[in-house]
Design a protein around this nucleic acid. Structure first.
Length: 423
DNA sequence: AATCCACAGGAAGGCACGGTTA
DNA sequence: TAACCGTGCCTTCCTGTGGATT
């Protein structure tokens, strides 16, 4: 195992050095060439930039871009504001939970509300702080609290201290605030389900038991509360706000607004936006996906040196996005999980029905001695299912035949094969 | 209704690694 | 330096369970 890690390290080091040496050489030669050539050759970046584009400014199509106005989310934002308004009267607001599938504007709405609150605070005599934390980046209680301390100006190492020390440092912030006023802290925990699944409900226990802290949790799943034990649940009395998926017409409105900002006038054919909206509406009203489609279609138009975006490009963009999404996902998976996929792929090609037991046999064969336990593979299977690469169906075949999972691939064989063996 | 298989899946703990503190 | 601590990755051990068959 250590040997393997060493090998990977050497491999990465080689790539790094290779890039460093040859990358530098190539870069220098370009510089030199330009110097010698004078007017003969202009800068390569200018050349690329000079080529026509359907875009004015792509950044508005990024799902992270926060527009000044969020279409069709007024109701939800108002709900958040109704709870948070307490803070302006120097009362800690109640905890709020936001549910909704991906791309329903949860994060945008929360950030929007944060900004609005900040504006409202400036004219009032209160001290309110809002902190946003994405739980995919900070996956344990320790990390979240440490991050909160850091954002509020306390130097906390990201390892080495006990949990209690960090929590005490965090609580200490509330004791001495600069202005002699007590501070109200609103913590936005985005994708909290990941944190709870990973590290249990300790974070909620700590935060709910700290005075003047209000939590806004954002979750993709309605049932994330199953991770919260009753001792914590009793002090986490939250108000729930649901973000329904966008309908096709609502997506059209969103896309229209963004495309006016990002595309050159008249570069979109009439059917492009409705098509993106319809496709994304099928994907559970995912606005992020709709924006991706539109941007990728535009990029394809640039690639083909077309000065308009037309319907067929949207369909092409769809394939490209799917393909890239799966390939990226698989290539960044840990080695053992890739082996599980390899085993599933082999069994699929043999047209065998894949049960957990059979899969483990094949996995052991694939990994040639360097294998992990069955229990571990079982967790991998669940993780792969969460990622949507495979699907499982638990069935029971009765006396003498037992209960098992039937596993099947959810993505195209060829894409998987390509992604697995190209690394 | 009882039975029984092949697992599912929870709990707990080991270990290496990278960090801090005294 | 030794003694701690959090964390990711993994194993071991264990109990729970759906439903066709008996």
């Amino acid at each position: 195992m250590n040997y393997l890690k060493l090998k990977i390290f050497i491999y990465i080091t080689n790539i790094y050095l290779h890039n460093k040496i040859f990358g530098k050489l190539a870069f220098e030669s370009i510089l030199k060439f330009k110097h010698i050539g004078g007017d003969f050759m202009s800068n390569i970046f200018d050349n690329l930039a000079d080529r026509g584009s359907v875009f004015k400014d792509k950044q508005f199509l990024d799902h992270r871009f926060l527009p000044e106005h969020l279409p069709h989310r007024d109701e939800q934002i108002t709900s958040i504001a109704k709870y948070w308004i307490e803070a302006l009267n120097n009362v800690t607001p109640s905890d709020v939970t936001i549910y909704g599938k991906t791309g329903t504007g949860k994060t945008a709405a929360a950030k929007f509300a944060m900004n609005q609150l900040k504006e409202a605070t400036s004219s009032k005599d209160v001290y309110i702080r809002t902190e946003y934390i994405r739980c995919t980046d900070y996956t344990t209680e320790y990390q979240v609290i440490a991050k909160l301390c850091q954002q509020m100006g306390r130097d906390v190492p990201y390892r080495g201290w006990t949990k209690a020390e960090v929590v005490n440092t965090f609580r200490d912030i509330f004791k001495k605030t600069a202005f002699g006023k007590n501070m109200i802290l609103i913590v936005v925990l985005d994708e909290i389900d990941i944190l709870l699944k990973n590290d249990g409900d300790g974070i909620l226990y700590t935060l709910t038991r700290t005075d003047n802290v209000s939590i806004l949790s954002i979750s993709n799943y309605v049932d994330f509360k199953k991770f919260i034990k009753s001792r914590v649940m009793s002090s986490f009395r939250d108000r729930e706000i649901v973000f329904p998926p966008y309908g096709a017409q609502q997506l059209v409105d969103i896309l229209q607004e963004r495309s006016d900002l990002s595309f050159i006038n008249d570069s979109l054919e009439n059917d492009v936006i409705p098509l993106c909206a319809a496709m994304a509406a099928k994907e559970e009203g995912d606005a992020r996906y709709a924006l991706d489609l539109l941007r990728t279609a535009g990029e394809l138009a640039d690639e083909k040196e077309s000065n308009i975006v037309y319907g067929a490009l949207v369909r092409e963009a769809k394939d490209k996005i799917e393909h890239n999404k799966i390939t990226d996902l698989i290539m960044t998976l840990p080695v053992q999980q890739q082996r599980v996929l390899e085993a599933i792929l082999k069994l699929t090609m043999d047209k065998e029905e894949i049960t957990s037991g059979k899969l483990y046999e094949m996995y052991e064969e694939v990994s040639k001695g360097d294998s992990v336990s069955y229990r571990r593979i079982f967790d991998f299977i669940n993780e792969l299912e969460m990622l949507g690469i495979i699907s499982t169906n638990t069935i029971s075949r009765g006396r003498g035949k037992g209960r098992t999972n039937i596993i099947s691939l959810q993505c195209d064989n060829d894409i998987l094969e390509h992604a697995l063996y190209s690394t």
